[in-house]
Simulated assay, not measured.
Amino acid sequence: MTAMTPPLGGSLDSLPPAFSVAEVGALARQHWGLEGDLVPLTSERDQNHHLRGPGGQFVVKIANLAEGHAVQRMQNGALRHIEARDPALPVPRVIATLDGRDDVVLADGHLVRVLSWLEGVPLHAAAQSPAQSGALARMLARLTRALEGFDDPAAGHVLQWDIKNAAQLLVLLDDIADETARGLCTDVLGRFGRNVAPRLGDMRWQVVHSDLNPHNVLVDPAAPDHVAGILDFGDMVRTPLVCDLAVAAAYRIDRDDPIGSLAGFAAAYHAVNPLTVLEREVYFDLVAARMVTTISIASWRAARYPENAPYILRNFPSARAGLQAIAALNPADVAAALRHACPVKE
C-alpha cells in the first residue's frame, strides 16, 4: 500500500466513534430530554443514530475525535446561517440542549450534537431523470447563495475531499487496483495541474456544502423529481465556489449523453447563481477531478479499513463509469456546449 504523504484530514485517517446504543440514548435523554428508539446510521467518519420518539425524529451525532470541535461548531453556525437566509431550504436544524447549547463535549473529548430529521427517499435509491438533475442543481445554487456571507476560522481546515487539493492525490494512485481507472486518474490530475491549480486564486471563494452526492440528498417518494432534503454538512469547507457545483455534477453524468448532462446541470445552477467565465472554463476539469478524488481516496481507505469498505466504496462504481464516459470527450466540444448553456457577459 502506498505510504501516506498528503494529509487526508485526521478524521479520514481514523475510525469512527463506537458508543453503544444505550450510551447514545443516555446522552440524548440527559442533555436534550429526548426519549425513543435508536437506529444506527452509516457514516464515514462520525457515529450517527436516528432517534424516533414522542418528541419527534432526530439525528444524534457523535463526532470523530480527530476532527476537532471547531469544525463541528462551524457546521452548526452554517446551518443557523442558512435557516436565517433561506428558511424554506430543506436542511437539518440544530436542536439546542436543555440548557440552550448547540452541543455537548464529553469528558473524553467527544462532541455530541442533535439535528432535526428530514423525511424522504435517498436519491441513490430513487428513479433518475433530467428534471430531477435540474431541480438538484437549482437547489444547490440556492444553498450556495444562502451560505453567502458565512465564514468561520474552521472553514479553512484541510480535507482531501475538497477538490482544490486534488494535486495531492498523486501519491495515492498506486492503491487503485484497476489499471484502467488508475491511468484515467493520472491523466485527469495532469490536466488539473496544468489548467486548474494555477487559477484557483482567481476564483470566487466561500464556504460551501462540498458533498452533494446521491447519499446526501433526499427526494419525495411520490415525486422523485422534487428535492426533499440536503444532508450531511460534514465536508463543509471554504473553497472555490465552483467546486461545490462540480462535486454534485460528478454524480449526475448520463453516460449516454455526457456533454448534455454536464451542460444541463451547469445551466440549471447558472440560472439561479450565475457562473463567471473562469468558473465555466474549469468546471469540466473539476468534475473529472472529483471522480478521481472519489476513486483514489475510497481505494486507499477501503484497503486500510476493510470492515467499513462497503460504505467507503459506495460511490466507486459510478465514479469509475463517469470518469470513463467523460475521458472520451473532446474538451473543446464540452467548452462549446458550456458556453451555449451558461452565457456570460465577457
Rank of each mutant, 00 (worst) to 15 (best):
residue 154 A to W: 00
residue 252 R to T: 12
residue 272 V to E: 15
residue 229 G to C: 05
residue 152 D to G: 01
residue 251 Y to F: 13
residue 184 L to C: 08
residue 258 P to I: 01
residue 147 L to D: 02
residue 240 P to I: 04
residue 193 G to S: 14
residue 181 A to P: 11
residue 179 E to M: 06
residue 158 V to H: 13
residue 178 D to I: 06
residue 293 T to K: 02
residue 291 M to D: 06
residue 208 V to A: 13
residue 275 L to K: 04
residue 289 A to M: 06
residue 293 T to G: 08
residue 219 V to R: 06
residue 227 V to W: 00
residue 249 A to Y: 02
residue 253 I to H: 08
residue 158 V to N: 08
residue 158 V to G: 02
residue 188 V to A: 12
residue 184 L to W: 14
residue 222 A to L: 15
residue 289 A to P: 04
residue 200 L to C: 10
residue 185 C to Y: 09
residue 290 R to P: 04
residue 264 G to Y: 01
residue 170 L to C: 07
residue 208 V to P: 09
residue 223 A to N: 15
residue 279 E to T: 03
residue 246 A to P: 10
residue 216 N to Q: 09
residue 214 P to N: 12
residue 183 G to K: 05
residue 270 H to T: 05
residue 201 G to V: 03
residue 289 A to C: 06
residue 175 D to V: 02
residue 187 D to E: 15
residue 240 P to M: 07
residue 239 T to N: 02
residue 226 H to R: 15
residue 221 P to R: 11
residue 209 H to S: 02
residue 178 D to E: 14
residue 273 N to V: 00
residue 260 G to P: 04
residue 291 M to W: 10
residue 163 I to W: 01
residue 199 R to A: 15
residue 250 A to G: 12
residue 178 D to T: 03
residue 227 V to S: 01
residue 184 L to G: 03
residue 191 R to L: 12
residue 284 F to V: 05
residue 182 R to S: 10
residue 224 P to A: 13
residue 149 G to W: 07
residue 186 T to F: 07
residue 213 N to P: 06
residue 183 G to H: 10
residue 158 V to M: 08
residue 281 E to V: 00
residue 206 Q to C: 11
residue 249 A to K: 03
residue 174 D to M: 04
residue 245 L to S: 01
residue 243 C to S: 14
residue 269 Y to E: 10
residue 183 G to Q: 14
residue 261 S to H: 03
residue 148 E to D: 15
residue 198 P to S: 14
residue 231 L to M: 07
residue 168 Q to I: 00
residue 199 R to Y: 12
residue 217 V to S: 10
residue 234 G to E: 00
residue 265 F to I: 05
residue 182 R to C: 09
residue 183 G to S: 10
residue 234 G to K: 00
residue 236 M to A: 15
residue 175 D to P: 11
residue 243 C to I: 06
residue 174 D to Y: 01
residue 218 L to W: 08
residue 172 L to Y: 12
residue 159 L to H: 03
residue 194 R to G: 08
residue 209 H to Q: 11
residue 211 D to W: 07
residue 244 D to T: 05
residue 251 Y to E: 07
residue 268 A to G: 04
residue 293 T to E: 04
residue 164 K to H: 13
residue 177 A to D: 15
residue 198 P to I: 13
residue 245 L to W: 01
residue 162 D to G: 03
residue 269 Y to G: 11
residue 163 I to L: 11
residue 184 L to K: 09
residue 275 L to V: 11
residue 162 D to N: 14
residue 189 L to G: 06
residue 168 Q to M: 09
residue 257 D to N: 13
residue 202 D to F: 06
residue 184 L to Y: 10
residue 182 R to T: 05
residue 252 R to M: 13
residue 223 A to K: 12
residue 280 R to G: 08
residue 242 V to S: 06
residue 150 F to P: 03
residue 212 L to M: 15
residue 218 L to P: 14
residue 254 D to E: 05
residue 276 T to H: 05
residue 190 G to M: 10
